[in-house]
Write a protein that binds this DNA or RNA. Structure first.
Lengths: 159, 159
DNA sequence: CTCAGTGCAAAGGATTTGCATGCCG
DNA sequence: CGGCATGCAAATCCTTTGCACTGAG
């Protein structure tokens, strides 16, 4: 049952956004890192996007940013648990906000153009998956940190 | 509900293996490619493995193979639908036989050592996922070719 | 003042490709 | 014989890193 995610309130300065900033600043501060302008920009970009962004996506949207800084800061944000790296099928890694800063969701990955869209699964599906995970953990000793349920196919635009 | 996959019969020359060879040869032949010794070696390696293999895995197991030939032939086998590329979280792509040559399954990906293990989900989980997919297709116009349900976590060895 | 952060340029590293040779059909 | 397949080496291209400079506290 897909439904829109994020974009709850894209107004700058909204309660949701400033809370996000506070959380990001806290997590960075915990390891002696600052919440700089560039990092704020990255967080805001990811928060406003309706899908994970690749580095080219980010650079084209903010051409003044240095490529290496984007890579470096996304890595830092990933380490402190603000950003999550999403691996798809094309050559570019993509990034989105960590799940505890947005909401649990899944991806539709277009094998033709590489674009990634978000969707949320029905509670019933999530319950099934959760059960499967605990079964697997019990039987194999594998400790699951999180799961990914992605659909790979062809998006409407490429069809 | 994890259970062993493949390895149904690892005896060379068994019915299952020769059938696999016939299928591979057919799919290659359909686009004017041959089922060469090297390709047969790759198919056999993947068939015997209990998990997707990276190129380094393959090269260390068959040190005489040229790296570029392995890359090139895995790409060819992927194009004709004999092999599937599995994207994980580390730097190496991994490869396994296409699902219609083995059976539908999922992956346990260790975020520490990068190793990938196979597991199969219960029919109930698969039914839920199948339903979710049709819901998404109906609502978004996305045509799903296949799905991936992977668990990312820490394997017993790394725990 | 100090030290993390930034930008530029160069290095890394998995994967791809050009080219000459080998081999199956 | 002709064209696909192979191996070696060089090229690609995303990503990471070295280094000197800038800026916030």
């Amino acid at each position: 049952m897909p439904k829109p995610r994020r974009g709850v309130d894209t107004t700058n300065g909204s309660a949701a956004v400033s809370e996000l900033h506070v959380t990001a600043a806290e997590r960075l501060g915990a390891v002696g890192q600052r919440f700089t302008t560039l990092r704020r920009t990255l967080v805001d970009l990811l928060a406003e996007a309706r899908q994970p962004l690749s580095i080219p996506d980010i650079l084209s949207s903010e051409p003044t940013l240095a490529q290496s800084s984007v890579y470096r800061n996304l890595a830092v944000l990933e380490e402190v648990g603000v950003v999550r790296r999403v691996v798809t099928t094309d050559d570019f890694a993509r990034h989105e906000l960590a799940e505890d800063l947005t909401e649990h969701h899944h991806h539709l990955i277009c094998s033709a153009c590489g674009v990634v869209e978000d969707f949320t699964a029905s509670p019933h599906v999530e319950r099934s998956v959760a059960r499967a995970i605990s079964e697997v953990s019990d039987l194999t000793g594998f400790t699951s940190e999180h799961h990914r349920l992605d659909l790979i196919g062809v998006c409407r635009a490429c069809a």
